[in-house]
Design a protein around this nucleic acid. Structure first.
Lengths: 323, 323
DNA sequence: CTGAAAGCGCTAACAA
DNA sequence: TTGTTAGCGCTTTCAG
């Protein structure tokens, strides 16, 4: 910056002003400075400007998801990036992979980098109590749990109940449930929805939890379908589990009805086409980012909770009758 | 930091040493400092330490892809993150969306943040000539084009030719080609592979390019299938295009063979199961990150180009005969 | 083993 | 409209 100032025959302050959208700099001077900048290939040092700035704002937000490789979170990340871009922010990301230590490390790294905001799928809500100083936080997919934090949630309980009822209405009474770890809030919500809908017919024998990927879901489904009194329908509580369930049904449960949570690419081209409860990751991400930037723009109203729906998309796999 | 030092009754320098993996600090002193750190909830300011450090290393790398929402890039991002984590680095990301201006802005933002390294799917190779100072760069999916930069590529030409030959071997001679923008290197490579395999039988009437999403690909495929002399097989040059092709074939091209570039989730459960040329995004990402960190660790050998294969996965849609 | 002083590149506050 | 001075929070250097 010193070099640029010398080259343009001005003081560093003038250069700084030009870089930061010059107000009160004579156009001719500004032009000279800009010329020197390009000629010398000068690049602002963001770390230094952040350091001295009043609010220490880094113009960076962080996105903490369970796993960026999951298409659901990837779509969410795309939406967040788009919103951030509109505000001139850059985005850091990290995948906690449902590992509390890893989550802690990522949050520590993000705060060390002095991100202005944080959009997170929290695992360890307790930990967050300490992380809430000086940074705006919006939770996604898990509730604030008493913390003064905005949250964007999907009504998985209602949606799951809706999906299970859909199966009941098509004559099924033995409906298997395939779910993720019970430690995950969304997983508990969806299981609760399943119980709501099953009512008296609820049978713990038909419930399999702790399924973290398609392979383990497939195995659990195969076991369920191979049992003495197999279910005539399966409810799969997320996208990965749905993939496993579809494979299992194809392998050894011909005719078994399936309803999955989360939409899947080409779900309409499977046979039978897959009936799902579709969440909208783009809407979730956009909403979360908007809440975050509202906070960064000074909104200090009490923390809000936005509840988004998941919609039943009827395609075929959930409408076959038992037998 | 001052506060921590006072609280522990030591100088700031000692605190700094403790934070940076204390060498030469008495254990008892270190313990006292650590206690003060947790008690005061102190968090290192990364911007400040970066500023004063010898190499100005920020311990951040950036990942610039076409679109993070695309599962292919999402998987790649996951692999890059994993590798970065092993080295204690955090990852910034951005999607250029095949927009040169946007790419330029993102690179400017990344360099302003003084990232130590950059993994990028470059659009505007020229622009990169200027961006190469002080930051290690690895290209993915597009060649270095004379620039002194490592690149991780997939041999799309050979793979595409292999896929098209597969169709030829199953009796097809009129094979439609559905591709992305001709401005994209991988798209040109794949088209070239198609031409290689078609040889004399190449017919420009059967080629559709510039397809940027599943919808436009579907439309192009429908047109092709509805023409006077429709193709009996389609070669779809990426995942999004394959999705469109599958839809079009289902809608109005029953029996048309399909080979797609890129694997798709549950491709094996489509009817017919989808034959594809599968790239491995995780391997691509891991390889790129390893190259980058090798550079950051001081490797200054001449720039390398790693060529990865795409493998033909035979499942059914590419083996139906014309009829 | 520990601390004091200097200064990284920039912007806030003021002075000219 | 422009320049000068101070100092952001940390690490380097060097002295104890």
């Amino acid at each position: 910056m010193r070099d640029v100032a010398d080259a343009a025959g001005v003081g560093v302050m003038t250069v700084s002003r030009v870089i930061n959208g010059a107000v009160g700099v004579r156009p001719s001077t500004a032009e000279r400075v800009r010329e020197a900048i390009t000629r010398l290939g000068y690049q602002l040092n963001h770390a230094a400007s952040t350091l001295r700035r009043r609010n220490h704002g880094s113009m960076v937000i962080a996105l903490l998801v369970d796993d960026i490789a999951n298409p659901f979170y990837a779509a969410l990340a795309g939406a967040v990036e788009e919103e951030a871009r509109g505000h001139g922010f850059t985005v850091l990301f990290g995948s906690a992979k449902e590992d509390r230590l890893r989550e802690r490390e990522l949050v520590a790294a993000f705060t060390a980098h002095r991100v202005d905001g944080l959009i997170a799928v929290p695992t360890d809500t307790e930990m967050w109590r300490d992380a809430l100083t000086g940074v705006a936080v919006v939770f996604v997919d898990r509730p604030a749990n008493g913390l003064p934090v905005d949250a964007v949630l999907v009504d998985g309980r209602t949606a799951a109940a809706r999906g299970v009822r859909h199966l009941l209405e098509h004559g099924h009474s033995r409906i298997g449930y395939l779910g993720d770890l019970a430690s995950i809030w969304t997983a508990r919500q969806r299981l609760q929805g399943y119980r709501d809908a099953m009512g008296e017919a609820f049978d713990p024998e038909l419930v399999r939890q702790g399924l973290r990927d398609a392979a383990s879901a497939e195995q659990a489904a195969v076991e369920l379908l191979g049992s003495a009194r197999p279910p005539t329908a399966l409810f799969a509580a997320n996208d990965l589990i749905t993939i496993g369930a579809v494979r299992a049904v194809a392998a050894c449960g011909e005719g078994t009805a399936v309803v999955g949570f989360d939409d899947i690419v080409l779900a309409d081209r499977l046979s039978p086409p897959l009936t799902v409860l579709a969440q909208d990751p783009v809407e979730i991400g956009t909403t979360a980012a908007r809440l975050l930037f509202a906070r960064l723009d000074g909104d200090d109203s009490p923390s809000r909770e936005v509840l988004l729906p998941a919609t039943l998309v009827v395609r075929g796999s959930g409408e076959s009758r038992p037998g």
